[in-house]
């Protein structure tokens, strides 16, 4: 997930003949299914693109803690609280693997945080939507993590070794999260009238933003073509969105909930659902910073970073003193 609008710096895909020998050899390795490792030569565009994509993904994990953290202190049972805590802890862990993967490309975690905090790097637009009821914890797990998995499973085969390996660990945990989310939805959908209402309301609010998570149609995009040639993007946005709807629509039916799309119906001929596109104007508004929670999410991150400065400085200073004392003793 979570890298929904990454523009590559390439100007379209070059043919093998147009490439210089080094670039050609690189592309041939990718075509042969080789993994690229940190010390290998790689084109600048590949490196830059990956930093943006992995960074966006890492930031999404970190910012994604906030809408769920919003309900940890109000979780309705001890078990639900523990499950949610475990989930948020996993997400912070995913952030950590991904920042480490990005660091192998020559950018530091602090630089990436800086770019998140000053708005130069994005995170998934889904986290700019509020979590208003407990059912939203179900919807986030079921829909948001569900959409993330759609995106991430293919990325386990991505060409960059550290990214692919991080993705394998992440996918295992994400599937678990999705099942937990669905379990919350099931409890709610089969619960009291008030709980059913919460469940339906959560689906109403999260359906289209979840479809947006795959990014706008990129069939004609030269940026996407380049990323696909480099195997840092494995499917088009539309393919993944279709797959997501095909998986999710029957689940909604099973829950007895109504997907907020009157045009949603099974199309026998294409073997998939027809469905309405999300409002892409809303998507671009959210990306630009005008989503319901953009300001709050970023301010929360900045506040955490600023208020934590003294802790980071102190830990460095202490480590430095210890190192000096050890040297003096030797």
């Amino acid at each position: 997930m979570y890298a929904q609008l990454v523009k590559s710096s390439g100007k379209g895909v070059k043919s093998l003949e147009e490439m210089d020998p080094q670039e050609r050899a690189f592309q041939q390795r990718i075509d042969a299914g080789d993994k690229i490792e940190p010390k290998d030569w790689m084109p600048d565009g590949y490196r830059k693109n990956l930093i943006r994509q992995i960074g966006q993904h890492a930031h999404s994990e970190i910012v994604g803690q906030l809408p769920e953290g919003n309900w940890i202190t109000r979780a309705p049972t001890l078990e639900r609280k523990a499950i949610l805590l475990a989930k948020v802890q996993d997400e912070a862990g995913h952030g950590l693997y991904l920042y480490c993967a990005a660091e192998t490309l020559g950018v530091t975690r602090d630089e990436l945080f800086e770019m998140l905090n000053n708005g130069k790097m994005k995170y998934s637009s889904i986290f700019n939507y509020p979590t208003l009821t407990w059912a939203d914890m179900g919807a986030v797990g079921w829909l948001v993590d569900g959409a993330a998995i759609m995106n991430q499973v293919p990325l386990q085969r991505t060409s960059y070794g550290p990214y692919a390996r991080a993705m394998i660990r992440i996918c295992k945990e994400e599937s678990f999260h999705q099942r937990q989310g669905f379990d919350i939805m099931m409890k709610m959908a089969n619960g009291s009238e008030a709980q059913k209402k919460m469940a339906q309301d959560a689906l109403n609010r999260f359906w289209f933003p979840s479809l947006m998570m795959f990014g706008p149609s990129d069939k004609e995009s030269v940026h996407s073509a380049q990323s696909m040639a480099w195997k840092i993007k494995m499917n088009t946005n539309d393919e993944l969105r279709q797959k997501f709807v095909d998986q999710t629509a029957p689940q909604a039916e099973y829950l007895g909930l109504t997907v907020p799309d009157e045009t949603l119906r099974w199309n026998e001929e294409k073997g998939g659902y027809d469905f309405a596109e999300p409002d892409w104007n809303e998507f671009f508004d959210v990306i630009k910073g005008n989503g319901p929670c953009n300001t709050d999410r970023l301010n929360a991150r900045r506040k955490a970073w600023d208020e934590g400065a003294w802790v980071r400085e102190a830990m460095l200073a202490h480590a430095e003193k210890k190192r000096a004392a050890k040297l003096a003793a030797e």
């Binding site: 970190i62 910012v63 803690q65 906030l66 769920e68 953290g69 940890i72 202190t73 001890l78 078990e79 609280k81 523990a82 805590l85 475990a86 948020v88 802890q89 912070a92 862990g93 952030g95 950590l96 920042y99 975690r109 929360a300 506040k303 955490a304 970073w305 208020e307 934590g308 400065a309 003294w310 802790v311 980071r312 830990m315």
Partner: peptide, 28 residues
Amino acid sequence: SEWCGKAPILEEDIALANTALDLMGQTQ
């Protein structure tokens, strides 16, 4: 658990969530 997502360092976020999780387990 009120610290979730707001710790000074990512590793501390993980450690605090982990501690909270242990304590919730003991509570149960």
